[in-house]
């Protein structure tokens, strides 16, 4: 070991493809499992959320329009980028959570594999969930799932990387754009994942990542009228009612999840039914 001072990373937010600091100027301290200072990530404010929603809304039509094949490749590209940087993620997970290397390796591997899994859903979910409806009349009638719009999410505290991937991937694979609040205690994986996003082909604004406090951001997510859906998997159950009450103002679709399955993708899709006459 030499005496070189290593260059530490400044953890910022990820909004519209850029890494701004929080407009509030606030940070909070993240410490390792052993209590050692690691970083001062941003303590995002409601205004950061507002900016992120603007970015997500602007990005949504373009992302929605991308072909399923294209979206699948972009999710797969995320997996490729994550694979290439797995060592960094393993280190961060160990540092922040104190888990064994084997456990950290496992989480990163699962995260990569999960991205690949969701990538493959992009061009299958419509076939699976769509329907041709045999109506009693001379009409062609079909139902297709469509993206819902802008979704906000509270990622689970742990596992910080896999939980984030399980939140992000099913939401964006269908064409939604997203504002996600990362694990409060372990936000490093999320912000490093933002670097993965920035170096992949995900268009700016499709995934926006905030760090900060759930209690502070979640109510603003719930009440924001330009957010269509809300994933509260990362929010403790005792806060669900308050969020649901607030979210009722624009009838947000609010869900929490216990597993990863196609239902998680469909939760933030809308079924559209189209009728057209059949005639000469």
């Amino acid at each position: 070991m030499n005496n070189r001072i290593d260059v530490k990373k400044t953890y910022k937010l990820f909004i519209n493809g850029a890494f701004p600091r929080t407009e509030s100027g606030r940070t909070y301290e993240v410490k390792s499992a052993k209590g050692v200072f690691i970083a001062n990530p941003c303590l995002a404010s409601r205004k950061d959320l507002k900016d992120a929603v603007v970015a997500a809304r602007a990005a949504q039509p373009g992302w929605n329009k991308a072909t399923a094949y294209n979206k699948g490749q972009i999710l797969y590209r995320l997996a490729e980028m994550l694979e290439g940087r797995r060592a960094q993620f393993v280190d961060e997970i160990i540092t922040v959570t104190g888990v064994t290397k084997a456990k950290a390796e496992q989480e990163v591997s699962e995260s990569i594999d999960r991205l690949v899994w969701y990538a493959g859903w992009s061009d299958k979910i419509s076939s699976l969930s769509g329907a041709l409806n045999p109506v009693a009349g001379p009409y062609y009638n079909f139902t297709i799932p469509e993206s819902m719009g802008v979704i906000a999410a509270i990622a689970p505290e742990t596992p910080s990387l896999l939980g984030l991937i399980d939140t992000v991937a099913p939401i964006i694979v269908s064409g939604n754009t997203l504002v996600v609040l990362a694990s409060t205690k372990a936000p490093l994986s999320a912000m490093s994942f933002a670097e993965v996003i920035a170096t992949s082909d995900v268009p700016a604004g499709v995934i926006n990542i905030l760090t900060g406090k759930k209690d502070e951001i979640a109510p603003w997510m719930a009440s924001h009228m330009d957010i269509d859906g809300l994933d509260i998997t990362g929010l403790t159950t005792k806060n669900h009612a308050e969020i649901r009450i607030s979210g009722a103002e624009n009838l947000k679709r609010i869900f929490s999840f216990k597993s990863h399955d196609p239902g998680r993708i469909l939760a933030f899709m809308e079924a559209k039914t189209v009728w057209h006459p059949i005639g000469l």
Partner: peptide
């Protein structure tokens, strides 16, 4: 952005055809 789109027809209903809305 609507749950049911009637193209070249309107107000048709059928039990096999899902019905319901987006947004509010």
């Amino acid at each position: 952005r609507a749950g049911v789109v009637w193209a070249n027809t309107f107000n048709k209903f059928d039990p096999t055809s899902p019905f319901g809305g987006y947004k509010e």
